[in-house]
Design a binder for these strands. Structure first.
Length: 297
DNA sequence: ATCATGACCTGTTAGC
DNA sequence: TGCTAACAGGTCATGA
């Protein structure tokens, strides 16, 4: 599931339970996720205090003391949940029955501060497309997955002019180009569909077709740039609201309710004002694309 | 270089 | 009800 807004929601949800706490114990329930876990993962992490939780694109970055950062990617199906000790049980006892698929609880951090009871931070990932890694915080910009990342959708580095520069040589469909994390980072299948829908751009169009012959952004590309910003900012906001409502009930993070205007609405009416189109689903590069053939041109 | 495809995994759901 | 096939929010390696 997780695109940028979901990962940001996870970050915000975990931060109050992790920042300033010490990782007292790391339990590893298997030797690898998508990739093997790093050398001496357990011993390098145990005993360190969490300074800060940050995020780059779809990567969660847990800054630890002494120049170490734990990087976590949720892949398609990863999530975190928080379990606090149940005050009704014996001190130190945890509720462990809620999750349907504990079989996929791959990494468990026991974390605490002073005399407060410890909490458990549990990483669950059925499909195991996610991974974790360790890197020195001072070397984070050299991390291979980060080096090539394009700008964040809500950051200052993103502009219509920048996208025009990147698009002008790309003959492939604009949808695929927006999924390329080296062009812009953090977008995934859902939010690309949503952004193109808002900007009324057909996903099959060549990326270069929204750039003028002189290399300037077209009006549509300016609309798209705004749409990307807006759709991501709104989704982060929706994630924040769901956090407030949801976290206390089951402690799970990484999934939240969000209304999509075009994604997963095949054969349903287009929601654009005054448009009587029907949403189509096609496949591009092996992924589903949803769009309205009437108002996306 | 650019682009599309298949591979990695397991779970859920639509259709018969 | 049970079986099968298609599909799922992400990368990464490969080959045309």
């Amino acid at each position: 599931m997780p695109e940028l807004p979901e990962v940001e929601t996870v970050r915000r949800g975990l931060a109050p339970f992790m920042e300033g706490r010490r990782i007292r114990e790391l339990t590893l329930n298997r030797a690898d996720l998508r990739f093997p876990l790093p050398e001496k993962f357990k011993t390098r992490v145990e005993g360190r205090k969490v300074e800060q939780l940050s995020r780059r694109a779809k990567y969660l970055v847990i800054n630890l003391e002494d120049d170490l950062s734990l990087i976590a990617h949720l892949g398609m199906s990863g999530s975190f949940r928080i379990e606090e000790p149940d005050k009704a049980l014996q001190p130190g006892a945890f509720h462990h029955e809620r999750s349907k698929d504990q079989a996929h609880d791959h990494v468990v951090l026991r974390i605490g501060r002073d005399a407060e009871p410890d909490a458990l931070i549990i990483y669950n990932d059925p499909r195991r497309f996610g991974f974790m890694d360790l890197i020195e915080t001072s070397a984070i910009d050299t991390y291979p997955a980060f080096k090539a990342l394009g700008p964040e959708p809500t950051g200052n580095r993103l502009s219509a002019q920048y996208l025009a520069e990147r698009f002008k040589t790309k003959k492939g469909p604009i949808k695929s180009v927006l999924l390329d994390q080296t062009v812009i980072s953090g977008l995934g299948n859902i939010y690309v569909c949503e952004a193109l829908y808002r900007a009324h751009i057909r996903p099959t169009r060549a990326a270069m077709s929204v750039v003028t012959p002189t290399g300037k952004p077209s009006r549509q590309l300016e609309d798209l740039t705004r749409a990307i910003r807006d759709v991501i900012a709104e989704a982060i906001e929706a994630g924040g609201s769901s956090l407030r409502d949801h976290i206390q009930t089951d402690g799970s993070l990484g999934y939240f309710q969000h209304r999509f205007r075009v994604y997963d609405r095949e054969d349903k009416p287009c929601l654009t004002e005054g448009c009587d189109g029907i949403v189509h689903r096609i496949t591009q590069s092996g992924r589903s694309t949803f769009y309205c053939p009437v108002c996306q041109k």
